[in-house]
């Protein structure tokens, strides 16, 4: 069973502020999801290549050609805050 501490840790990593009742609700839901994973574990996958994609596709690449970038103004247009040509972000706190 996943612990409240685990949920709090993951929430912190995802920058989610959870109230105690939300934390418990998330814990219960994650528990259910993990139980489902346990169910999948029961399937015999011996000899099956692990996969990360549902489509049987590999090696999708492009040539190294420059495409005109978006106009600087367009890219800055939605910035909540800026200084000249730069985005301005709130103080960085490394805690």
């Amino acid at each position: 069973m996943i612990s409240r501490e685990d949920v709090a840790h993951v929430a912190r990593l995802a920058r989610l502020a959870l109230e105690p009742d939300e934390l418990e609700r998330m814990r219960a839901q994650l528990d259910g999801i993990l139980a489902y994973i346990d169910q999948l574990r029961a399937v015999d996958v011996a000899g099956v290549e692990p996969t990360s994609h549902a489509v049987p596709l590999v090696n999708v690449m492009r040539e190294d050609a420059v495409v005109a970038p978006f106009p600087q103004e367009a890219m800055l247009a939605n910035a909540p805050d800026r200084v000249g040509e730069l985005f301005r972000v709130p103080r960085i706190i490394e805690d």
């Binding site: 970038p69 890219m75 040509e85 985005f87």
Partner: peptide
């Protein structure tokens, strides 16, 4: 496809 040249005006190659 954005260019990689160094020293361009900020946020002009995105």
């Amino acid at each position: 496809g954005c260019p990689t040249a160094f020293g361009a005006a900020p946020n002009s190659q995105t």
